[in-house]
Every structure is written in C-alpha cells, then in structure tokens.
Design a protein around this nucleic acid. Structure first.
Lengths: 342, 342
DNA sequence: CTGAAAGCGCTAACAC
DNA sequence: GTGTTAGCGCTTTCAG
C-alpha cells in the first residue's frame, strides 16, 4: 500500500533506477525497448515521482509564486487582475509550473512572504506592486530570486526601480493618446479623474494627461479611487469646479461609468456636451455603458503571459550561462478604442 | 555562498544536527542554554530549512491546493469566490500552510490536476465543484487525499455526493425564506429567476422556491446566468409571461440589479408594484441598487474559513488516529437581510 | 538531555 | 546503453 518508488518500478522492469529515471525525464540514451518496458512498469504500478525527492537533488521546485498585495480583498473582483492571472496561468501551464498564491495584507505578511520566497519553495516570483512606496521591490532585492513585477515598481521615495524586470502597460502613452484624441475633437476644457495617487499607474496616467496639457490648471484634476462611486463623486467635484467642462479623461472604466451616470443626472449629453474617455477597456463595462465608452485598451492577458515568460527566461539558465543579467522589462502598448462617448 | 544547512548551523553552535533540528521544530527536551545557542547560530547564518528535504522525510508538504473550475475566466471577478478565498487564506495562514492554486478550464486539466494532487505536492485539497455533472468529486475519490468541497458536490447523474466533506450555504433554506417573506408581504404572483440550472446551488435555490410554492406554474420560473444582463433579460421574459407579477425571487444580487433596472424601465415601482429579493448580499451591489436590495445573506468568508478548518481536521491526524472518518460536512445558515426592495 | 546513524526517493557523475 | 554509487538536507529512532 506504500506509494511505489523508482526502485519498485526498476525492479519490476528489470532495469536500474537510473534507467527508469532517464525514461521518466525524457533523457536520451535509452534503447526503445528498455524504455518501453520501463514505461509499462510505471503504468502498471501507477508510479508518480516524489517531488520532494526530486527537488532535493535538482534544486528546482517547478513552482512560481504570485504575490499580490490585496487592498482589503478587492483584488479578486478586479477584472484587470483577472486578465493578468489568466495570462500567467496559460504560460505557467506551458512550462508545467505550479502557481503558489501569496497574499500580502498586513505588515507582518511581508516578512512571511520573504521567508517563504527564500525557502526554496519556488523558482521565481511574479509580484504586483501597486503602491508607489511598496516594500516589495526592496525586499526582492535582498532575496536573490528571479522575479518579475507587474507594473513598474518603484524603489523607495523617488527611486525608480531600475534593475527590476517588469511588465507594464504604457499608462503614460495611453493616457496621452486619450487626451490628444479629446483635443483633436476640438475640446478645450479637458479635466481628468485620476486613480489613487499613491499608485504608480495612476501617477503615470496623470503624467500622460499633463504631457498633452501641461498648462491645465490644478482644478481640472480630481483624484478618484478606481471605484464606480469614486468616479461619480469626482465627476461631481469636477463639474462643480468647472461647469463648462467639455471633456474628461477618466483613469479607469469603472470610474468612467460612475462619471457617466453623474453627467446624465446633471443633464449633460455625452459626448455632445462632455466627451469622456476611460482606461482599461473592460468589455463588461465599456460596452455596457450608455453611451458605450471610448477607452484605452490594455491587454492584461498578454501582460500576464509576458510576465511569466520573462520569469522563465531568467529562471531556466541555472545550468549553463551564469544567471545572466535580469531580462529587459517590457512596456506593452495601449490602444485607443473608439466607441460613442468621445 | 551556498545556502547554510543544518549541518552548518550545528557546527557553529557546537552541537549536533539533531539538536538543532529539535530546536527549530520546537520539540521539547532541549536545555534552554543549548537551544539558545542553536537559535543564535540560525540567526547568524540566516539559516532557512530546506523544505524539500523536510518533506522528503516527513511526507507532508505544508501546502493546500485550491482547485477552481473557472468558467471562462469569470471566476476571478466573482465576489462570492473572493469571499471564500479570503476566508481560506486566513485559516491557512493560521496553520502556516501555503495555497497552491489549480485551475481547470479545459478537459485536459482534470488529468493534470489529478496528477498533481496525487504527486504529494499538497496535504489536501479544497475544491469548488459548481456544476452538477462535475468530474471533480469522482476524481477525488480515486485519489486518497483529504479534500473538502465548496458547495455540495454531486456524483454523476443523480447520485448525491455522500461521503464527500463539503461546506455549503443553505441555498434551499435561504431561498425558501426569501419566498416565504414575499408571501408574507401578501404577494401572490411570485416569480423566480434562477441561476444556470446545471449548477447545484442554482438547483437548490429553485428547490427552496418550490418548497414554498409547490403549485407555481412553470412560466413563473426563468433561468438566468448569474450575470446582470442575464437577470435583466430574464426579468423581461418574466414580465412578458406574467404582466401582473407582484414579486420575484432572484437567485443572485447581480441578476437582481439587472432585474431592477428592467422593472424601472417598464415603469414598475419597486417594491410597490413588484417586490424583489436577491441572494448573496454583496454589499457592493445590494446596498447600491435603487431601491437597496432585500436579499439572502451568505457568509462566504466564514464558509471559506470552515472549508480550510475541516480540511485540517482531516489532514493532521496522520500521526495518531488512523485517518478517521471524513469529517462531517457543514451547511452554513443564511439570513434574510431586509432593505427596501421587499 | 544530546549525539550517531540510518534512511526518505531521487538524480547525476562515473564506471562498465 | 545501462548500472553503481554517492549524496541532496532533513527527521527520527536508538544509544548513551
């Protein structure tokens, strides 16, 4: 009733452990006939390799950690993260790697996560570092573990995360394109509703807005919180400050849907009176609003896929090239999707 | 530059491997003085136990799998699952266990998951089996691995999953309570919008409706898909079939919000003309609708916590009691939350 | 209370 | 091509 070991399989096939091991790991140099016999024994015994033993000697775990700093459980209802995770999953699958999910919620968790990551449980880590003052990037530096960030990480106050590999959307460029579009429509009083300004992506999107509108007065900028309600509130504020506003760039679709509602309630026609552009292109939102939302598309699934791929690029040369430099980061392009709101 | 091993620590502390091992694992029978010396050496060397080695000998992995059958990537935008996962996470944390996330999307994945689960990577599994014909319960039977299901599992056509441990909300009772409430309000033409009827929970909620209204004609029952749009469409159908409907029990808050919208568009006042009760009590939806939604609350976080707890109950007696019977399943109570819609 | 020694199940040199 | 032999780093009897 004991789980069969390599030894058992070998005995049954009448060969040695090493040979069976070679067959199982698909190594060359085993005659077809012997290989067949070994495979048969494996099947008959229902042999499944003991991973712990394998790891012990290979020093590889076959698993990848995904570290998420979950802002009060909202992460898992986030379609952006959903897309990311989906892309990651697909790529991990191709590599036969497992996904170990690590949450950071309280401050204690950083130590816990660091401890886990340094425990050899995983071959690499994919981390989402949203906040501008996130300790994660600093932490990973001390760990000597292949890692790829989702979103450009920031290291301490003002220090950009050079040396960290990351995959991020072109937040700044996308935002700039959105605002440029608004201006090309002849709009002159263009406001913006930003995400929480302690997040890198929010900051980048705001920078994109400023790139195009360097002289926009501060009152045209209102900080939101990426929620629908936050978007609605921010829109109300914006309208109060600038009643003759004729366009607004909203840094997320969710906020945009809230903004649209307020605009409607206040009797502003969209896009006639006020043109609106969102960000994310979440089908469930952007296609369902009234009018459908013009927005900046980011391909979250592709981003996830890329994160995993970069990680594996870094990870696999453990036998061979001396670990190499961290692979280059990639900024994925965004694309303006024109619907009816602008 | 090699990672320090127990041996290194032992040498530094001037004791034996065994002693250090005991200290690390908090075993009794080590003098305070020696223990202190060992701890000091651990700290100085930054020693972190090699999990693979430990697992190899203990036969325990310290990890738990969470298996989700992800219906076309919608799972991660599901607040119910979010709550569940949150509860699970909390409990795993208490036990110092890791969470390995396994997705089932394509048919291939079942084999992959089964293989993984039987590979000794995890000490147990938490599985969400939504569909009535889900292969997961059958699969787990052949695996000899402690497992707890989220939602009552069903084994093949008509065979209820006896012998499987699960944690599920009292879908049937909750639905019945909702309908009973509607009736107590004097409503007589009570329809229902169900979830996808290939899901156990949907079926159970419908049964609850029927428990109270055994004579409701089939036209009063419309199948939805748990989405907002699905709820809207179903509401339209229901209204078409029965224009003088005076109440509706909707099997999810998301669908209820869609239904509410249609009701409003058709000029039906809620709750005056049509009373509406939802299911789930997702704060983000139920409190935000107009009018706020009366709904059946299920405590998803508690359910998640319970799942993990039951799993550990089953899991830990590997040294001691002979594995024991699978622990009892638990059906968590639901509670009607009265707001304004009914 | 502490240490010595025997593996856990596997891979990887190294012989044959 | 295939087998032999060392370990990987840890826990766990069993002596002392």
């Amino acid at each position: 009733m004991r789980r069969p070991t390599l030894e058992d399989v070998a005995r049954r096939a009448g060969v040695s452990r090493s040979t069976v091991s070679r067959v199982i790991n698909g190594e060359p140099g085993v005659s077809a006939e012997v290989a067949e016999r070994a495979r048969k024994a494996v099947a008959e015994l229902g042999y499944v390799p003991n991973q712990a033993a394998r790891r012990l000697v290979t020093h590889r775990s076959g698993a990848v950690a995904v570290v998420v700093t979950e802002p009060r459980r909202r992460l898992f209802v986030d379609p952006v993260f959903d897309g990311l995770l989906h892309g990651i999953r697909g790529e991990l699958l191709r590599h036969g790697a497992q996904l170990v999910l690590l949450f950071v919620e309280e401050d204690d968790d950083y130590a816990r996560v660091a401890h886990f990551l340094s425990g050899g449980h995983v071959d690499g880590a994919l981390l989402f570092s949203l906040r501008a003052d996130d300790p994660l990037p600093g932490m990973i530096d001390r760990l000597d573990l292949p890692a790829v960030f989702g979103g450009r990480p920031v290291l301490g106050p003002g220090r950009w995360g050079r040396g960290h590999t990351y995959v991020g959307a072109d937040d700044r460029g996308g935002a700039a394109e959105a605002v440029r579009h608004l201006r090309s429509l002849g709009r002159r009083r263009i406001g913006t509703i930003t995400g929480p300004l302690d997040q890198v992506s929010s900051l980048d999107r705001l920078d994109g807005y400023r790139d195009v509108l360097p002289d926009a007065p501060p009152r045209m900028v209102v900080e939101g919180d990426y929620s629908r309600e936050g978007g609605a509130d921010a829109m109300a504020v914006l309208l109060g400050r600038c009643p003759d506003l004729d366009a607004v760039f909203v840094a997320s679709d969710k906020m945009a849907s809230g903004a649209l509602q307020v605009l409607r309630e206040r009797g502003r026609a969209v896009p006639e009176d006020v043109a609106v552009v969102g960000f994310d292109d979440l089908a469930s939102i952007a296609e369902a609003t009234d009018p459908p939302l013009t927005t900046v598309r980011q391909d979250t699934e592709e981003m996830g896929r890329l994160m995993a791929r970069l990680l594996f690029d870094d990870t696999r040369d453990d036998r061979g090239a001396p670990a190499g430099r961290a692979p280059a980061s990639v900024v994925t392009p965004t694309r303006l999707v024109l619907r009816k709101s602008a």
